[in-house]
Computed example of a mutant assay.
Amino acid sequence: MSARTAPRSTGSGPPTRKGVATRQRIVEGAAREIREAGVFALRLEDVMARTATSKSQLFHYFPGGKDELLLAVARFEAARVLDDQQPELGALTSREAWLRWRDKVLARYRAQGVDCPLHVALSQPGTATGAGRTVATELLGQWRRQLAAGIRHLRDGGAIAAGLDAEREAAALLAGIQGGVLILMTTGSTDHLEAALDSGLARLGLTED
């Protein structure tokens, strides 16, 4: 079961299908509240109203209250970052596939604009802890591994330079993307993100002629 859907254990046995669905409804409802109103305006009462859940239900799944819910939203949004890049991210086996992935990443962040629910959730005091860092580390680790797998596939097949270090190139590309996203959140412009993507693909020898 993924981090997106796994409910918190309450010590009363495995979660039921209904319990999983209820918890997921609360998480997704809170995520929509954050996108629409911002995290600082997030109230548990609004989440309960949006998701048709009671206070006892919300605290059953999130006994830590708002901080615990924000962390669950962060995990949900982290999973969406990778899901929104599929199937291209998981099949970077050709130059064309890399270019389609590049276009999908740009389209995602252009549509998102300056609002990044994942960044907002992780930046809050309740999640800016070891748990919050774990969410970010998991996301970046999974993202880097899939990029590295694509680089290795092309390198081992002779499509790109044999001497490229797949892990290091994936890390550099990912760092460029994240830098571009942070600038986007500050300025509203995707120019730096586009430049980072194009420079990374050029280094791999994958840019368009």
Results as ranks from 00 to 15, higher is better:
157 G>T: 15
38 G>F: 04
19 G>H: 07
165 D>A: 09
123 S>G: 14
98 W>F: 04
177 I>A: 06
142 Q>M: 06
67 D>M: 06
203 R>H: 14
45 E>S: 14
163 G>P: 02
195 A>I: 08
115 D>F: 08
144 R>E: 14
113 G>V: 02
113 G>F: 04
60 H>I: 03
204 L>K: 04
13 G>D: 00
85 Q>K: 05
62 F>P: 03
208 E>L: 11
115 D>Y: 12
10 T>R: 15
15 P>S: 13
131 A>W: 07
181 V>H: 07
127 T>V: 05
119 H>C: 15
160 I>A: 07
93 T>M: 06
207 T>R: 10
151 I>S: 10
22 T>M: 12
10 T>Y: 11
93 T>N: 14
113 G>W: 13
144 R>C: 06
62 F>L: 09
163 G>D: 14
196 A>S: 12
18 K>E: 09
2 S>A: 06
168 R>L: 14
156 D>L: 15
71 L>M: 15
101 W>Q: 10
45 E>H: 07
83 D>H: 13
27 V>D: 00
37 A>H: 13
189 S>W: 11
94 S>N: 13
104 K>G: 12
77 E>F: 01
12 S>Y: 04
35 R>A: 08
152 R>T: 12
7 P>A: 02
91 A>L: 07
203 R>F: 08
9 S>N: 07
158 G>Q: 11
153 H>N: 01
112 Q>W: 04
176 G>S: 04
115 D>K: 11
208 E>Y: 06
137 T>I: 03
132 G>H: 01
84 D>N: 08
173 L>Y: 07
3 A>N: 10
48 M>W: 09
87 P>F: 05
143 W>F: 10
195 A>M: 12
71 L>K: 01
146 Q>K: 03
10 T>N: 14
36 E>Q: 15
22 T>C: 14
154 L>C: 04
150 G>C: 05
6 A>T: 11
16 T>Y: 02
46 D>K: 11
47 V>F: 03
33 E>R: 14
135 V>E: 10
179 G>K: 00
118 L>I: 08
13 G>N: 02
77 E>S: 06
193 L>N: 05
35 R>C: 06
175 A>W: 03
59 F>E: 10
18 K>A: 12
36 E>D: 15
114 V>A: 15
104 K>F: 05
95 R>E: 14
113 G>T: 03
15 P>L: 15
105 V>F: 01
172 A>M: 13
114 V>K: 13
156 D>R: 12
102 R>G: 00
151 I>H: 03
145 R>K: 13
164 L>S: 07
164 L>P: 02
52 A>W: 04
64 G>V: 13
94 S>Q: 09
69 L>V: 01
41 A>W: 09
96 E>S: 06
38 G>S: 01
99 L>Y: 12
189 S>A: 07
188 G>K: 12
97 A>Q: 06
206 L>H: 03
91 A>K: 10
202 A>N: 01
197 L>R: 00
109 Y>L: 13
197 L>A: 05
144 R>K: 02
199 S>P: 00
60 H>W: 07
159 A>Q: 08
59 F>V: 11
84 D>V: 09
86 Q>R: 05
172 A>I: 13
198 D>M: 00
75 R>T: 15
50 R>E: 11
114 V>H: 02
113 G>A: 14
181 V>T: 11
98 W>Y: 05
194 E>Y: 04
153 H>L: 06
42 L>P: 01
179 G>I: 00
26 I>E: 05
10 T>L: 10
156 D>Y: 09
